[in-house]
Amino acid sequence: MVDTRVTLSGLMLDNPVIPASGTFGFGYEFADIYDIDILGSISLKGTTKEPRFGNPTPRIAECREGLINSVGLQNPGVHAVISEELPKLAKCFHKKAIANVSGFSIDDYVYAAALLDKEDQIGLLEINISCPNVHHGGMAFGTDPQNAAAVTRAVKEVCQKPVYIKLTPNVTDIVAVAAACAEAGADGLSLINTLLGMRIDLKTRRPVIANTMGGFSGRAIQPVALRMVYQVYGLGLPIMGMGGVSTAEDVIEMMLAGATAVQVGAENLVIPTACKDIIENLPAVMARYGITRLADIIGGAHHG
């Protein structure tokens, strides 16, 4: 019998597998596909102070082993998330969920985070300073260590629950940004968000995505994500690792690099049962590699 449990800043998870924000909605619709209570947790759809339609369509472009999205933080706003979405989730998910918060100013972040922090269903906050699909916000906070620290500090001041900062890979030195978040009081880090990318339609000779560029994710980015998780592990903060994870082997690899929990993103969009499949395969894959307690391998690649 293997032990898949991990603890994320005091939050005990039955397993480290968490659907990533933006690929799983507010969770409850996936309950029609499988019992979502098997998940470690769920990172909910990115939530902002005000409701947002998001970007114009086309928002999606296919790539080799991945896709580009330019959804642009479509969400009903924090008040509707609390009054409508969370109650629907409560009916089919009986564990703590992760609130994912985005904004266009520090006040926006503080506003939404403070409200979600008060919700019993929320166990942890993930602050997205890395969305590549919105102007004047999102990634603008995540590419500058000082801005990243300012958001972290402001959100920490109004939240009782653990605050994880979700980082963008679109920087020269992710360790500098991560260190600034750590210094500002972040309880943990989430990485990576999508890589800025684009596609051009050969027939029209125009970008496929209406917004020209978007966030590239999917299996193709797994080595980049793994490398960045490995790099920031040295800071000592717990990490939710994500980027191209599609198998139980990927989960173990990400944990060896330094992740305590692992999020699965784009894979949910093509294999609706991706997280369930990974969770079910995990014990056999652990056994194959001689792992009895998953928590023991966190950061294992850094030792001897």
């Binding site: 759809k45 339609f53 928002r59 896709l67 479509q74 969009l269």
Partner: peptide
């Protein structure tokens, strides 16, 4: 018709405006 990511409502890739909301 619209370019879709998942096709089952998860990714919000194909959202449009209607008189009844998004």
């Amino acid at each position: 018709e619209e370019r879709m990511g998942c096709g089952f409502g998860a990714c919000m890739g194909c959202t449009c405006h209607t008189t009844d909301g998004h």
